[in-house]
Design a protein around this nucleic acid. Structure first.
Lengths: 194, 194
DNA sequence: CCAATTATTGACCAATTGATCAATAATAAT
DNA sequence: ATTATTATTGATCAATTGGTCAATAATTGG
């Protein structure tokens, strides 16, 4: 190797992710990005190739951080149902200081992009389905722990949970009233039990 | 009056709305709009002043058409609960041929725009709250008709319905599976009854 | 028919966009 | 130290952006 990059690639992707998450794909210019990560166009394009490619990296990182967050909740909670609850409560209400938007970056992306960016669109869909699968697995664990009825379908209930997360976060962005959201979340969980 | 415009203003706004609804605010260029409505820049800016102003008109029209759709459902259904159900079923599943996106234009807008366009953002929020108020009124009617428990709060349940609509439409865009959505919608309504 | 008013047209503008590239600088291996 | 390789820099590009404007055309009232 002849010369080594001065910047930390992961850090750059993280900063890009935060910008994309806040402003969306279209409203984030490559200049914005270059300023945020302190790279000149040459290094920038040598490292990532295109705006789309960097966005793709940002999506991957977002999903992986979301996954990590769920793992943290698993460490702090001993019941699977408790993990789901803590996870949902966390992403919907609790992370104002780390999140640049009330809404999920993946949801913002499928809301914003069209078939013109079908690769990024499909990637977002796939990552959302991953989360849904993780929730389904947690529900299976909850069934074994006796906290969730064995007569219910885990995959179906996971879809239900995804609908609730998407709905609640969007509603949160619209109403900005955590109190209301919290009570809706409570009701949702009591609906789940029977 | 000296000369009269050749175009139909309402028709122009409608076409602009369809484009904005499909592609979002940022991805729709003023050129796209001018082509779609067949107006040269001069006429275009004489008529609307700015891209933001036309988008604002489009939002108003969207909300008013949504309102009209709810009125149609009211004409076709004699129970208030039936109206709510038909309305939700319609916007979530049934209007593939008229809607350029699975998602609500107002939701797409609050998802896409930031404080940089605070006027449009606030307008979208306000229009969504109007729909919520209409739903609350229908629930009150449903209470009088004995189809919805008088022990429940109508405004609270209206929030709940908004969460469901937002969630289901977003999920629809992600999964593209009407069957699943329909069953989730059914469950939601049975949850409502008790 | 004329004049006053208004609508339409298309050339044009400055700014921003995503992206390229030759020149330069830095490093590691020999 | 020299060389080969790689990273960085900043000027630059063509295309697109939202928007302006003077010239022209069309219409209506007098």
């Amino acid at each position: 190797m002849a010369n080594v990059a001065k910047y930390d690639r992961d850090e750059v992707i993280h900063k890009a992710m935060m910008l994309f998450w806040e402003k969306g794909f279209n409203a984030t210019s490559t200049r914005d990005l270059q300023d945020a990560v302190n790279l000149r166009p040459g290094s920038f394009y040598a490292a990532f190739g295109s705006k789309e490619a960097l966005f793709s990296e940002a999506l991957k990182l977002y999903a992986s951080e979301s996954h990590d967050y769920l793992l943290n909740m698993s460490a702090e909670n001993d019941s699977a149902m408790g993990v789901i609850r803590a996870f949902m409560q966390g992403i919907i209400l609790g992370r104002k200081k780390v999140a640049p938007s009330e809404m999920c970056m993946l949801v913002k992306t499928i809301a914003e992009l069209t078939d013109e960016h079908s690769v990024l669109l499909e990637q977002s869909r796939e990552l959302l389905k991953n989360t849904e699968r993780q929730l389904a697995q947690l529900l299976e664990k909850a069934q074994q722990e006796g906290e969730f009825s064995k007569h219910k379908s885990c995959s179906h209930t996971a879809s239900y949970l995804m609908v609730q997360i998407m709905g609640l976060r969007t509603y949160m962005r619209n109403s900005q009233s955590p109190k209301l959201i919290e009570s809706l979340l409570d009701e949702m969980f009591s609906n789940l039990q029977h």
